[in-house]
């Protein structure tokens, strides 16, 4: 009974372990330290976005605008670095823009009663458009001031042998875990997803909480934009296309219910890792990128079906 319970509670973790075992049998080079660190670094961007997405989905919402916010924030950040704006100022301003864009979607959802799907679909389209206008459709260079070199460290640097994006993702994870499990607003997020009417009648400021979760999602998308721009040493206007799908997939693979109210941030981390391992494995096994998409979709479907049957 205990084992069965553990299994159904941690099905995504078990899935990840099995996947890693299978891949390491098929390709021995998979388990090398270099490759594992590589997977973590590749996963970190999706993990950061997916953790913000988890907040939104826990309130029974969805955020389709994450990829567009990533691109816009990345472009703005790149031009600030290119203009020799002090690093901390540039980072803070970029995160604020992300939070503000998210909060705008949240306000539209809260005050005009627009479905999150529609509100963020509009956001996704308009922010992508704004990015193309702002960049005139061309990549934005981060320039060659001194500050640019410090900026690149965010994407490509190491601390004690661990890539900085991985460290950032882990800090974000720890913060999200704390907020969801040990704060009032975390409890409110679950309550609103569980039953919005009950939450309202319990005297919770539902609008404020919804705006906050979209702001968190926006800020984390901007953070992902910073990491990507620093890694590529320039901002692409088409960056982050379809990233919302990988983020949603990570959340769902992690066992969070799209109906809201149920799920864990740990699950999202594992979900992001499953997608990362899968991408990496298909690459080192030389599977063509066309087939990779089919394989990825299949694995997600399988995981979700197993999860449903366990319920």
């Amino acid at each position: 009974m205990k084992i069965k319970e553990f299994a159904s509670e941690n099905i995504s973790l078990i899935g990840l372990v099995i996947l890693m075992l299978l891949v390491s049998i098929a390709s021995p080079s998979f388990l090398s330290v270099d490759n594992l660190l590589n997977i973590l670094r590749q996963t970190s961007i999706n993990a950061v976005i997916a953790m913000g997405m988890t907040f939104v989905i826990l309130t029974a919402g969805i955020d389709l605008s994450v990829g567009s916010i990533l691109a816009f924030a990345g472009a703005v950040c790149a031009s600030m670095i290119g203009a020799d704006v002090p690093l901390l100022v540039a980072l803070f301003a970029t995160l604020s823009i992300g939070a503000l864009l998210g909060a705008t979607s949240g306000s539209i959802v809260s005050f005009f009663g627009v479905q999150p799907f529609i509100a963020t679909l509009v956001g996704m389209t308009m922010i992508r458009g704004a990015t193309l206008v702002y960049t005139e459709g061309r990549p934005i260079s981060t320039g060659d001031y001194e500050v640019a070199n410090a900026f690149y460290e965010i994407g490509g640097g190491y601390v004690a042998g661990i890539p900085i994006p991985v460290i950032i993702a882990f800090v974000v994870f720890a913060l999200c875990w704390y907020v969801l499990n040990y704060t009032r607003i975390g409890r409110y997020v679950y309550a609103i997803g569980g039953n919005e009417q009950v939450a309202k009648l319990a005297g919770i400021n539902v609008s404020a909480v919804k705006i906050t979760v979209f702001a968190i999602s926006g800020a984390l998308s901007a953070l992902a934009g910073i990491i990507l721009t620093a890694r590529l040493e320039s901002a692409q206007p088409t960056a982050g296309l379809a990233y919302e799908l990988d983020a949603i997939a990570a959340v769902v693979l992690g066992g969070t219910s799209l109906m809201g109210g149920r799920g864990r941030i740990t699950g999202t981390l594992i979900g992001a890792l499953i997608i990362g391992v899968l991408n990496n494995a298909l690459n080192i096994m030389d599977v063509s990128s066309y087939y990779q998409m089919i394989a990825k979709g299949g694995v997600i479907l399988l995981a979700v079906v197993i999860d449903r049957r366990g319920k």
């Binding site: 409890r187 309550a191 569980g194 009950v198 319990a202 149920r262």
Partner: peptide, 20 residues
């Protein structure tokens, strides 16, 4: 529909209104 979050636990339901 209005009183309790049926899918969640006793603790989170009971403390919801007085969480502060």
């Amino acid at each position: 529909l209005e009183g309790l979050i049926q899918s969640q636990g006793l603790r989170s339901n009971m403390s919801l209104t007085g969480l502060f």
